[in-house]
Amino acid sequence: MKSFSGKALFLDRPDINTDEIIPAKYLTEISRDALAPYLLEDLKLDGFDPATDIAGKRVIITRANFGCGSSREHAPWALAANGINLVVGECFARIFRQNMFNCGMMAVELPADTIARLFSTFADLETTVQTDVDAGTITFSAEGESKIIPFTLSGFDADLVTAGGWVEYADANF
């Protein structure tokens, strides 16, 4: 199973699309690792600079409808190439969400008010995330603040995370 823990990156905007996550001009790369330098290059978000804000981050916390637009699985691949295997948000675009679990990564949905509290408490702090998939908890910690947030995966999503992705699962079952 992949790692879902580490430093947090807060992206305070809904509807971040996959063109912003990885622009189409980089879709000519066959190697997934080659996408790493271009993650979030076109993100329209005040105060965000991909050159300085992504390094060392392992988890993204964002608002609603992350990953909308193009079906490109290059979006999760670009995240994974930067060591980011978990995105936490209010809800996700269908194709992006499925792509994440199909790669053995996680797109975890939390209620809007929980997301709002996480932003108000942690967004301006250096925050570390510790995820326990078996227990179904994500612990957010920063400078004396700590919150344990429960989450649930459907049985199918959990199977994909455990199997490492959809190819192995489907080949074994269908």
């Binding site: 193009s70 489907a170 269908f174």
Partner: peptide, 30 residues
């Protein structure tokens, strides 16, 4: 199809959906 605008083909009364590369890969294989 590994293309989000695959929804176009629903115009024919079909269920047509854009998917990512892994779904496409399994579609090709299985």
């Amino acid at each position: 199809m590994g293309d989000s605008h695959t929804c176009t083909h629903g115009a024919f009364g079909a269920f047509a959906a854009g998917v990512g590369t892994t779904d496409l890969e399994v579609g090709i294989l299985k």
